[in-house]
């Protein structure tokens, strides 16, 4: 089970899009109760790696993968894995805020509803709790029936986080969650990530190295589909072992 405080561990993970190999022999453990940042230049496979963890990568045509990814003792590549349960336990927040064209309430209640929670009182409670955790409740509590798309970009992204939290996941994957937001909205999301780390395992892909430095405990550096280096964030940023890591974080390429 939760031995050694590891939530995910991958073994010999290889992934191809058609003939292009996007991930090359990834062997890594992702620790529990930590924020793990994944950094690297565009096209290095960091988003792909994230999408493997909830098998959203399956939606890409012609994708093929080998190796194993263990989530608390289960290989998520096994044939008998229930993808609905996997994606409920491993939630995801996307690059561009993507609330449904439904009300704020319905956006958050979507997950619980499809998983069989229909009691109004239960849903009300869950929606409020999720919106509070996502630091959005105070801004929207008087207009829960307004469309989610009427919110600002930053609020929409927090709504998407609340929507993910309503599923009560163990892991939250975030794929460059602030890349479409302005600096003020970005810093609110970063505060949110820090406050959520106590209760959730968070894995965040980011282009922004300062962001990785601000929010994460652990950092993985990807380059051309390979995992170059993993360490505690302050070590990666102050004393990287690999030359390529140093070159990337000092801005010499990327």
């Amino acid at each position: 089970m939760s031995d050694n405080g590891v939530i995910f561990s991958t073994e010999a993970l290889n992934l191809w899009y058609g003939k292009n190999q996007a991930l090359k022999n990834i062997n890594v453990n992702i620790k529990m109760q930590k924020v793990t940042a994944i950094i690297g230049p565009s096209g290095c496979g960091k988003s792909t790696f994230l999408k493997v963890l909830n098998r959203m990568v399956d939606l890409v045509p012609n994708v093929k993968y080998t190796g194993s990814v263990n989530l608390q003792g289960h290989n998520i590549f096994d044939e008998n894995i229930n993808l609905v349960n996997l994606r409920t336990r491993v939630g995801m927040v996307f690059q561009k805020p993507n609330p449904f064209p439904k009300s704020i309430f319905e956006n958050v209640a979507f997950g619980p509803r499809i998983h069989g929670k229909h009691k109004k009182s239960e849903l009300n409670e869950l929606v409020e709790k999720s919106l509070r955790q996502a630091a959005l409740w105070d801004e929207v509590k008087d207009r829960l029936n307004e469309p989610g798309l009427s919110l600002s970009g930053g609020q929409q992204q927090r709504l998407c986080i609340a929507r993910t939290l309503a599923n009560e996941p163990e892991v939250i994957l975030m794929d460059e969650p602030t890349s479409a937001l302005d600096p003020a909205a970005t810093s609110r999301i970063e505060d949110l990530v820090r406050s959520l780390r106590k209760h959730y395992n968070i894995i965040i892909v980011t282009h922004n190295m300062q962001q990785a430095g601000r929010v994460s405990d652990e950092t993985f550096f990807f380059l051309n589909g390979e995992l170059i280096e993993t360490d505690r964030t302050e070590v990666i940023f102050t004393n990287p072992k690999d030359n390529r890591t140093e070159e990337y974080i000092t801005g010499r390429f990327g």
Binding site: N54, M56, L59, L83, V84, N85, L86, R87, T88, G91, M92, F94, K96, N98, P99, F100, P101, F110, G111, R113, I114, H115, C160, R163, T164, N167
Partner: peptide, 21 residues
């Protein structure tokens, strides 16, 4: 938009639920 479908699937919706809701 593909975004909507992806969001629903990432929340654990099946194909049918994604279409229906």
């Amino acid at each position: 938009p593909k975004d909507y479908k992806e969001a629903a699937i990432a929340l654990g919706a099946t194909n049918w639920e994604t279409a229906r809701y």
